[in-house]
């Protein structure tokens, strides 16, 4: 089975005793102190090396190259072309960064990013990533369960959904100042509370052993591997517990095409294209074959129960 397959090399490389609190490694100064560790891994000039424990949720499928995963992106805040985020996201300033956790919680707070993630140990989660456009990747994320952040805020029993919001900063996000906005900014997303609390759902601060590049949603993004990629909201500034289903950006833009749930489902086509198959990025040039898309992106064993009794054609 994919999900529980462990890669022994990975276990060797990062023993759990080596786990560093996330906040410490996100601070560039601590990197200098840990230069010996850093020297073992290649790090791009802008990225900090992160250390993380392996996870039983990781797949052992071949990982997408870092080059492809950081240059072929949908992040419309920087333009609609796949190359635009890598070209233009450098303008985004991610330090300092504040995340508001509020809504139906007993302990709302504005966290500096380091303070938000300090209590949690980073894990590496190698997940399949399926875009609604019909392509997929395998990405080694570094993050921690969203559930931990929610628990720390002590949600009230009235909280049924979680609403997320991306930064709104047109002076640094050129896509937000377009003449004809492609989406209603800021980007917003949402999950049901049980989806948000599921152990597969993480907040990522890194990928490929380093902090997130801006084009991949720095400094903090959501990863929900059984849903289409656009649910994985990037550059998060607000996480709110709410009692009603929150609006989501793509659903607002085209309600007949993008539902609130947006679970990967080969049996429910996008109105304009089939979702039965996908193309794995890096699968072999011009003559690569499509792969069948799996229900819940192959995570059905863990998450299908969340939707028991629901008609997934209605709640797409």
């Amino acid at each position: 089975m994919h999900m529980t397959g462990r890669d022994p090399r990975r276990e060797d490389r990062v023993a759990s005793s080596e786990i560093t609190p996330a906040a410490a490694v996100l601070d560039r100064r601590s990197l200098i102190a840990g230069a010996a560790a850093a020297a073992m891994l290649p790090a791009a000039a802008w990225a900090d090396v992160l250390r993380a424990a392996a996870s039983r949720f990781s797949t052992d499928e071949k990982q997408t190259s870092r080059q492809d995963a950081t240059s072929y992106n949908n992040f419309y805040e920087f333009g609609t072309d796949k190359g635009d985020p890598a070209t233009y996201a450098g303008a985004l300033v991610t330090k300092p960064w504040t995340v508001r956790v509020d809504g139906l919680v007993d302990k709302p707070a504005d966290y500096a990013l380091d303070d938000l993630i300090k209590p949690f140990a980073l894990e590496e989660r190698i997940y399949r990533h399926r875009c609604v456009e019909g392509w997929s990747m395998v990405i080694p994320w570094l993050g921690f369960p969203l559930a931990e952040v929610i628990r720390r805020a002590e949600p009230s029993s009235a909280a049924k959904f979680v609403a997320f919001q991306t930064l709104m900063r047109p002076e640094q996000m050129r896509g937000q100042r377009g003449f004809l906005p492609v989406l209603d900014w800021p980007y917003v997303e949402g999950l049901r509370v049980d989806e948000a609390m599921h152990p597969l759902t993480i907040l990522a601060v890194g990928m490929y052993g380093e902090t997130l590049p801006n084009q991949n949603g720095a400094p903090l993004r959501l990863v929900v591997p059984w849903k289409y990629g656009f649910k994985g909201i990037k550059s998060i500034v607000r996480i709110s517990l709410v009692d009603k289903e929150p609006p989501t950006s793509w659903n607002r833009q085209a309600p007949s095409e993008y539902g609130f749930y947006s679970n990967v489902n080969p049996a429910v086509d996008h109105p304009r294209w089939s979702q039965a198959t996908e193309r794995r990025i890096g699968d072999g040039g011009l003559f690569a074959k499509r792969r069948p898309t799996l229900p819940f992106n192959g995570y059905g064993e863990q998450v299908a129960g969340l939707y028991a009794g629901m008609d997934l054609k209605t709640y797409f």
Binding site: D68, S71, Y72, K82, G83, W135, R279, I281, G282, G285, L286, A288
Partner: peptide, 15 residues
């Protein structure tokens, strides 16, 4: 470009 694997991440779609 396609035959030299230089059409980016999704060469078929790009071509």
């Amino acid at each position: 470009l396609g035959l030299n694997d230089a059409l980016g991440a999704e060469p078929i779609k790009e071509l």
